[in-house]
Amino acid sequence: MTTYVQTLLGILISALLTENFILVKFYGICPFMGVSKKIDTALGMGMAVTFVMAIASAACWAVYNLILVKLNLQYMQTVAFILVIAAIVQVVEMFLKKAVPSLYKALGIYLPLITTNCAVLGAALVNVQKGYDFLQSVFFGACGGLGFTLAIVLFASVRERVEKADCPACFKGFPITLISAGLLALAFMGFSGLKLF
């Protein structure tokens, strides 16, 4: 039992810090660059991604282990996962719109962007690759999403200042943003020696 809890804690630390989805694994760079101009939009995107990733990890785990493995169709995983994720995003959007309008107002505009966010598909694929069980998969999805949120919110607060900085013309816009992201990634590398046990 202790080893199981240890595994979960290991997943938490690695998904959040040492193998941060964005800054170390490079999953979900597009929204990271696209939606990190302001702290509050970054937070909204982060929460939406976390929410969808946890649900998608659970659904993809079920589809893979209960359907694909049983039918010996593991090679269909990419096609199946992307369809499941697209469907989940749609359902979550419709559900939130009807049931929790306040949450929909906050997260709604980010949801359609999530289908093509490679963090979600990435989490589903990594779950299979590492052979996580159901609980571990959901936990990995949620922690990965939190790691995503952490990085994007930190980065948004850096970026609000970088926008105003004076830099050479050819570095204006994305180049300077990428270089700031690089420095943030450098900071996160400090976690890489982190050990729990």
Binding site: S14, Q129, K130
Partner: peptide, 10 residues
């Protein structure tokens, strides 16, 4: 051939 669990998967 053995497959123990490490820090992160088998």
């Amino acid at each position: 051939e053995v497959a123990p669990t490490g820090f992160d998967g088998a």
